[in-house]
Simulated scan of single mutants.
Amino acid sequence: MATVVPLVVLWLVLWTLLQVGTVLSSVAFVLLLIPAGGLMVRLFILQHDCGHGSMFKSKVVNNWVGRFLGVFTLTPYDYWRKLHAGHHATSGDLERRGVGDIDTLTVAEYKAKNKTGKLLYRLYRNPLVMFGLGPSYMFLLRHRIPVGAMKEGLTGWGSTLATNAGILIMTLLMIKFAGLDAFLLIQLPIVVLGASIGVWMFYVQHQYEETYWDTRPEWSHENGALQGSSYYDLPKPIMWITGYIGIHNVHHLSSRIPFYKLPNVIKAYPELKEIGYLNFWDSVKCVRLALWDENAKKLISFRDARRLQFASS
């Protein structure tokens, strides 16, 4: 209720402002879209915790609430849950990258690519794509057709088709009662903003300079959780609205801890704040990082990779 009620209230306020149509109401409209997008992230975290079985005691309740929320977050719950479980199982494992993760190349892998491959990877890593076009593509289009899911059985397609049907019904009802303008100018921007904020949070949680990658047998789940996941120190209102997912090292260490109890863990064990600590300015500087340097055991930028190449030539 602490998430749904504020989101519904904000939606109705936005709809009212849309009817007014003055300059002042337009400014207020744009500004209020931002917290509405944040609340969409918090709604996704509720679904996320259902996927980990940590939201409710009952597995059945977790799954059905997760599926219902997936209609609003545009995420096929069962398909996503399996991918996300793979991410937790392989986080920090250099040999099992790409499972529900941000694609990351090593310096050697990048050098081995041809010009087209390098260009495509650079485009993928461009902030406009990573945090703008990419999230919109993922949530609006990619989640509608889970290409490659058939090899995992019918669950991926069944989950997606059921979610798509729910999204269609929700969209038609929204248009019927609020109008097409409200759907296009309120609901879609909220989803797009929420997607971009969510991808930013996910990126920062693993893509920082001193993150952790290793090969087996040296790799371990514990190191991947604590050393490869950040503690993202943000103002308390932002921590709340993003479901405390910035306390990501604790979440990866024990995904059965519900999001609202993560601050309690940090309060009991404040030393966990120091592991993978990032403030907002630290996180902004992470955007330039794109390649894993296996020798230095850290993420570096394309510019740093060029310097290494010149130094070794």
Rank of each mutant, 00 (worst) to 15 (best):
L188P: 10
R256H: 14
A182G: 11
F259W: 14
T3K: 00
G37L: 06
S220C: 04
L7Y: 06
R97S: 04
S159F: 00
I266K: 03
R122C: 04
S196W: 04
L308V: 00
A195L: 05
R81F: 01
S25I: 03
P127E: 13
I34A: 08
A108S: 15
A36V: 03
V204L: 05
T75W: 03
K111P: 03
A290P: 04
I167C: 10
T171S: 14
I186N: 05
T106A: 07
T75A: 09
M239F: 00
L133Y: 09
I300W: 02
K176L: 14
L12F: 13
A36K: 08
S283P: 00
L140Y: 01
L308H: 11
I102A: 07
Y79W: 15
K113P: 04
T215H: 04
A305F: 03
L12C: 12
D181C: 04
A162N: 10
E209W: 00
T106S: 14
G166A: 11
I190H: 06
G132Y: 11
Y137R: 14
M239N: 10
N249R: 12
L120E: 08
M138H: 12
R256F: 02
V265C: 01
K151D: 07
F310A: 12
H88V: 04
E95T: 14
G132M: 07
G156S: 06
L278A: 02
S312G: 01
T3F: 07
L262S: 02
S230A: 15
Q187Y: 14
V8L: 14
A112Q: 14
W281M: 07
G100Y: 01
A85Q: 15
P270W: 08
V9G: 05
L10I: 10
T171Y: 03
R42H: 12
G243S: 06
Y277F: 12
I247R: 07
A36D: 03
R42F: 00
P217M: 10
I275E: 01
G246V: 09
A311H: 03
L105A: 12
Q47L: 13
H48P: 10
L172T: 10
S196K: 05
L188A: 05
L7A: 14
L17G: 05
V23M: 10
L10H: 10
Y244Q: 03
V65S: 03
S196C: 15
N114V: 01
W157F: 13
I145N: 10
D181P: 02
S255A: 12
C286H: 02
L14G: 02
L141V: 15
S159M: 06
D181S: 14
H84G: 08
L308A: 11
V30K: 02
P237C: 10
V199Q: 07
L46R: 01
V13T: 13
P189G: 08
F44Q: 08
G98K: 09
E109K: 03
A311K: 15
G148I: 05
G156K: 10
I247G: 00
I45A: 04
I257K: 02
R96F: 05
S91V: 15
D49G: 06
A268R: 09
